[in-house]
């Protein structure tokens, strides 16, 4: 944990100051904004993935795999289709943001209804449901894309790639506020999460109001996913990578260890990817491509040895 913290701090300093010419008027504030976006986004991705995995009792499910981000993209595509290029103006900075949060919470209800009620599904089924949902919603999005003009498409594409460049200070402030509120609300569930990892029955007999907590946590996850996708874009398989790396690195599986570690790993990944884009690849690739390449490969490896972990 300490090592991760020091590593992140070193990377951050490197990111903010190297090649900045110590320009405090523009470059450094701009970079600090990006850094803050990475931190807030990293926290949102780390928390939402690990908590979702605990609730689902499954280590290859994350909100992204279950179609949360696909829903976000569909919403954006629809907004662009209905409101045109003016959608950015009409909804403003946080109109869109609030709409995303509402959409995510609504989608959470669907997921809750399908996956967490009724008989327990075996480990593979939710994964299948999630991937199919992602695909179906993705197809809808493509369908909508065909109906919009190239200018509108350019706006839409801005939403569908990970990027720290489009972060606006106002949106950042809102996101930070939401993440802080979620952390505060969730901190009371920290002890409960460890018990929930034992499964519904054991948690219930230890006095955890399981259904109520699942609902609460899914709601909080929805807010986190809305924050991270609208702030930095869809993270796809990154959550799985972050969560599993956190389990592997932590000596304990208590959530008070894995959650902060997962957040640090996510922030670290963003920093490394951004630095590589800037200094190694010289902007010839994007953060999204790098992260998806690394995490997609990891997801494939995990799926192949699915039997061992499920």
């Amino acid at each position: 944990m300490l090592v991760a913290l020091v590593g992140i701090a070193a990377l951050s300093i490197f990111f903010v100051f190297v090649g900045s010419g110590l320009d405090f008027a523009y470059i450094i504030p701009r970079r600090l904004t990006k850094l803050a976006a990475m931190i807030v986004g990293g926290i949102a991705v780390g928390l939402s993935s690990i908590v979702f995995q605990t609730i689902a009792g499954n280590r290859i499910l994350t909100p992204a795999v279950m179609g949360y981000e696909a829903v976000y993209l569909l919403l954006q595509a629809l907004l662009v289709l209905i409101l045109g290029t003016s959608s950015l103006m009409v909804l403003g900075d946080y109109g869109n943001f609030l709409a995303s949060i509402l959409m995510m919470v609504a989608y959470s209800l669907v997921i809750h209804h399908w996956l967490f009620k009724g008989p327990q599904l075996d480990a593979g089924q939710p994964l299948l449901v999630g991937l199919v949902l992602t695909m179906v919603i993705g197809t809808f999005t493509q369908f909508v894309q065909l109906r919009i003009s190239p200018g509108e498409f350019a706006i839409f594409q801005g939403f569908s790639l990970i990027s720290f460049d489009r972060v606006e200070p106002v949106q950042l402030l809102w996101s930070t506020g939401f993440v802080a509120v979620v952390c505060l609300a969730g901190s009371r569930s920290l002890a409960v999460l460890d018990l929930m990892a034992l499964g519904r029955d054991q948690a219930l007999s230890l006095g955890v109001d399981y259904q109520r907590h699942v609902r609460l946590l899914l709601g909080l996850i929805a807010v986190l996913v809305a924050v991270s996708t609208s702030l930095i874009g869809p993270t796809a398989f990154m959550g799985i990578f972050v969560a599993n790396l956190a389990y592997a690195c932590a000596r304990s599986e208590r959530h008070r260890v894995t959650l902060p570690l997962g957040c640090l790993i996510a922030i670290g990944m963003f920093l490394v990817a951004q630095l590589s884009v800037e200094h190694v690849f010289n902007y010839r690739t994007t953060v999204g491509i790098l992260i998806n390449l690394a995490c997609g490969a990891w997801f494939l490896a995990l799926t192949l040895r699915f039997r061992d972990i499920a």
Binding site: L198, D201, S205, G207, Y210, R251, S252, E253, I309
Partner: peptide, 23 residues
């Protein structure tokens, strides 16, 4: 009885408690 109160009176151990946590 509330879930929390019931857990102070009755404890349950299920068959084959599945737990892959490192605890």
């Amino acid at each position: 009885l509330a879930v929390g109160d019931y857990a102070k009176r009755v404890a349950t151990l299920r068959q084959r408690p599945d737990c892959n946590m490192r605890l």
